[in-house]
């Protein structure tokens, strides 16, 4: 238990003491995971909305794929992205392996199905008469989708929270495609793994505390937004 208390103290010291290396790791974790979450929104929301609103043959199969993807193991994504980005792999010429960009790609692949699946559920959860009403009021298809998404924004924020939570906390893909290189691709999760391997449990606990604080801060901001009283309603 001493490790736990020492870890807490160490976490406070690292953050308040302005430990440069830790702050770099924190900022990189944020940059990679926020960018990945942003990309997953750009991809996942349209996919989820389309699956919710458009009927086509084989739709159930696609929805099943998306739902399976929500539980995609990060290490499997890591292996796949590594194979693609290896120097002598299909995208090797881009020289992206062991860079933050590679980590962002892998994390976006992890978060996109989560965002798509939850968007699908959110839009399907709306009263079906709303869509009819919108159409009867003369809304174009684009306007219809826009207003439906607006109406579903509470569960959509939950989708963002889930996507961000999945990627900020994953380690398997980050260590595989990032390489855990000091000063370049070391993020909070991979640094924690390294410190455990080195037997520095106090530092590992401290980094975990920082990670939790970070995840909590971002999630709290999103939750405040979600729970805010909606003006005019």
């Amino acid at each position: 238990m001493n490790d736990l208390w020492d870890g807490l103290r160490e976490a406070i010291r690292l953050l308040l003491g302005g430990d440069r290396e830790v702050w770099e790791i924190v900022l990189l974790s944020l940059r990679v995971s926020l960018t990945a979450t942003g990309i997953s929104l750009l991809l996942g929301v349209p996919i989820g909305a389309a699956l919710a609103l458009v009927r086509f043959r084989g739709r159930a199969l696609v929805v099943g794929l998306v739902h399976t993807g929500m539980g995609l193991p990060p290490v499997s994504v890591g292996v796949l992205v590594s194979l693609l980005l290896w120097r002598n792999g299909p995208l090797g010429a881009l020289r992206l392996l062991y860079t933050p960009t590679a980590m962002t790609i892998a994390q976006a692949a992890i978060a996109t199905p989560i965002v798509a699946g939850l968007t699908l559920a959110a839009v399907q959860g709306l009263d079906p008469r709303l869509r009819l009403q919108l159409v009867s009021l003369g809304a174009s298809p684009a306007q219809t989708v826009w207003w439906l998404l607006r109406e579903a924004r509470l569960p959509l924020i939950a989708a963002v929270v889930a996507g961000f939570g999945a990627v900020i906390s994953e380690v398997g893909a980050a260590i595989m495609v990032g390489g855990n290189i000091k000063g370049e691709t070391r993020v909070l999760t991979t640094a924690t793994v390294l410190e455990v391997g080195r037997g520095n449990f106090t530092t590992a606990v401290a980094l975990s505390v920082v990670l939790l604080l970070l995840a909590y801060s971002v999630t709290l901001a999103l939750t405040l937004l979600q729970q805010r009283r909606r003006p005019g309603s």
Binding site: L27, L34, T35, G38, A139, E151, E184, L224, S233
Partner: peptide
Amino acid sequence: TITRRAPTPHAGFVLVAAMIWAASLLAP
């Protein structure tokens, strides 16, 4: 829903999020 209020994007939040993100870009 449809006729309700002009869009009030959550400007404050978006701004804060953008600032955090921009700050994180400084790391590299």
